[in-house]
Design a protein around this nucleic acid. Sequence first.
DNA 1: GGGCTTGGTTAAGGCAGGGTTAATGGCGGG
DNA 2: CCCGCCATTAACCCTGCCTTAACCAAGCCC
Lengths: 228, 228
Amino acid sequence: MINVLLVEDDIDLATTIVDYLDLESINCDHASNGLMGLNLLESNHYQMIMLDINMPKMDGLTLCNTLRERGMDIPILMLTARDSLEHKLEGFAAGSDDYLVKPFAMKELVARVQVLAKRRSGEAKRLVLGDLSLDINQRSAQLKQTPLKLSPIAFKLLEVLVRASPQAVSRQHIMQAVWGDEQPDSNSLKVHIYHLRKQLDAAHNNISLDTVSGIGFAITTNSKGAQL
Amino acid sequence: MINVLLVEDDIDLATTIVDYLDLESINCDHASNGLMGLNLLESNHYQMIMLDINMPKMDGLTLCNTLRERGMDIPILMLTARDSLEHKLEGFAAGSDDYLVKPFAMKELVARVQVLAKRRSGEAKRLVLGDLSLDINQRSAQLKQTPLKLSPIAFKLLEVLVRASPQAVSRQHIMQAVWGDEQPDSNSLKVHIYHLRKQLDAAHNNISLDTVSGIGFAITTNSKGAQL
DNA sequence: GGGCTTGGTTAAGGCAGGGTTAATGGCGGG
DNA sequence: CCCGCCATTAACCCTGCCTTAACCAAGCCC
């Protein structure tokens, strides 16, 4: 399930968008100004953000800049009536990933939202990180030619980590990606990480699954050689 | 250096684009149809592709589909005169990441190319100050290539100081930024600053963490050399 | 010069977060 | 129907971080 955030002060337009996205199985939270958006972003996890520019309290460009300053590289789509070239360039300069001019066709919005929400986490069918290699279709993984024996959840967990590598991934993000909306209550994640580590540590290799204190986990390769 | 591929059969337009991108320090190879594009893709590595749709030999949509079939998730920007909604949706359905309608402003093309080329490269958000370098997303810090071992609070503290550098930051401001609303009663900040200094002073470097009497603290670099 | 303030240094204790392990229960396949 | 795999849970341990308090050192004002 795709989970996105809309920051827009025009309530009518906002409800229209939220409803339409809902039909396309896209869950869309709504904030009516930048500050509210910032709040939601701190407590929830979204795949991408739609951002109006003209807003009270905190405008879209400022919010966009703020997020980038903080090192958040979540995809952002600017959604505004300003159609001049300068405004577009201003949007991109602030760190946005796409720029859609009002009025727009809902279907185009959906297409662009899906691209930003999904493509970023990749559609690649084959992932390689140092000695580790994942085949998404086959749900198989290899470490230095020897196959790993991974349960479904373990595989997905590994996939999420490798896709984000070398970035750290927050527990929240992992939970969302692996279990979706029905997350287990307890320390299931800890146990899975533990089992995963056991397999990864087994053979000597250049993969390390580190815990980032207070945040989550990160998988990295410490190979000096060429990195794709 | 950004390295991209343009697949376009209109030679005039192609040279214009290649020349313009060159001015922006973007290296752009050119293929005049899908098959040639495929060849170039097999022998070279590109950050993204610009794709015309109407072409002899192999059209853009087919090429796009082919690449996705093969599991290549390289970003693709469709570049075409077909401006109807159906055509756009067709482009996105084929697996493209963006869709720009001709004629377009060169500057907008550059902006979109840069976004697509950078997005996937997983480039980290970094703060650099002299010999010190912070990777926000990875939550890691390096001082002259050697990694620092920082606790969550220490990292945040350092981040706040580096962000403000060379300005001094008041104690109040630091407390707010690091602990938020639930601040410790005692001299916790002093202790953290102390530990931070210990690590920063360890190796000879050009970083100094000074206390500004009565105000707070400031981190600065005393390098004479070029400063970014 | 003395006490007060401001900032630096150090060690100790409590606590939380993460790691490890084993037991339970569901689900699917044989 | 039974067996085995796998996810989840609870319980436990342990490390290392944060806080705290206490003690110094240096300057300032009276």
